[in-house]
């Protein structure tokens, strides 16, 4: 017992020289990641005049105007709270649909054999490769032809078909999927769908959590499609409101804008913190142990 204690306490804070080197490198990398974001934070505490006028190192110093900026943001007659909840609704439903159906599709490819499978998969892969921008025109035309403009449906429904998510989950499933598990369930009389929900989903948990984060971030930050099709301000998402601040070329309230950006980023950090726990506990849930 004593021996164990000694080995555990080796080095400073339990870290040897090698570990410390890595630690320093990690810290430097973290610093590099945070630096621009620090600027975003510090700008959200300064007034527009200060932001526009004072560049250089001073812009890193926090000032005291954060709440002024927030107040300014809320006083513009923008429905920030409405936008916030709209974004939340759209992001959550998109994420749920995306992750669930992508897992379903991925399992369809991994766990079954059927005619035309290879072709369909090739098509799926091909869709990932198509440049997003140009589909914009056709997409807008479609939305308008279907009469779906000024509604959230065209923003949420397409998340069912997310090729990259399917691709990722399929790849992940290939490393964790075992025929035996499923065979066992079938012998026990379980229906396929039930198997999917009770066995496949849990073993994919880390992958699902990861993709849930990405999907949520993407849906949350998605700006151009909602702008193009939404007309009623009651339906606006948060990014639209934030970008409105940027609209008036000569009167941009940068203080409010940065405060808005910070507010926009905040829920995403929360989502990430919540879901990253699942990635860790997913190992315990997953049927990886044989």
């Amino acid at each position: 017992m004593k021996k164990k204690n000694v080995t555990a306490r080796k080095g400073l804070w339990g870290m040897g020289v090698k570990d410390w080197i890595w630690f320093v490198i990690c810290v430097l990398l973290a610093f590099m990641c945070l630096f621009p974001l620090w600027l975003m934070l510090s700008n959200s505490t300064r007034t527009t005049i200060q932001i526009q006028q004072i560049g250089g190192a001073e812009s890193l110093l926090f000032s005291t105007h954060f709440f002024d900026n927030v107040a300014s943001l809320l006083n513009k007659g923008f429905d920030i709270f409405g936008g916030f909840f709209n974004s939340l609704f759209i992001a959550i439903t998109s994420t749920v649909l995306c992750v669930y159906f992508s897992a379903l599709t991925a399992y369809g490819f991994v766990g079954y054999q059927f005619i035309g499978k290879k072709v369909l998969f090739a098509v799926l892969m091909a869709t990932m490769l198509i440049p997003g921008q140009l589909g914009m025109i056709g997409w807008y035309q479609l939305v308008v032809d279907l009469g779906m403009y000024d509604s959230w449906t065209p923003l949420i429904l397409p998340s069912i078909a997310s090729a990259t998510t399917v691709f990722f989950l399929k790849q992940y499933l290939e490393t964790t999927y075992s025929k035996d598990l499923v065979e066992a369930a079938r012998i026990d009389g379980a229906k396929e769908f039930y198997t999917f929900n009770t066995i496949i989903l849990p073993i994919s948990a880390p992958a699902l959590a990861t993709q849930a984060i990405f999907s949520f971030v993407y849906a949350w930050n998605n700006y151009l499609p909602p702008l193009m099709i939404l007309n009623s301000s009651s339906k606006y998402t948060l990014p639209i409101w934030i970008h409105q601040l940027n609209a008036d070329t000569h009167e941009v309230d940068f203080g409010a804008l940065y405060a808005g950006l910070v507010i926009t980023v905040f829920p995403l950090v929360v989502v990430y913190l919540v879901f990253s726990r699942f990635i860790v506990s997913g190992i315990a849930l997953g049927g990886v142990k044989e």
């Binding site: 009469g147 779906m148 403009y149 000024d150 509604s151 959230w152 449906t153 065209p154 429904l157 007309n231 009623s232 339906k235």
Partner: peptide
């Protein structure tokens, strides 16, 4: 929801 929304939009 979609149809309702479009109905109101129209």
């Amino acid at each position: 929801v979609g149809t309702m929304a479009t109905a109101t939009a129209c």
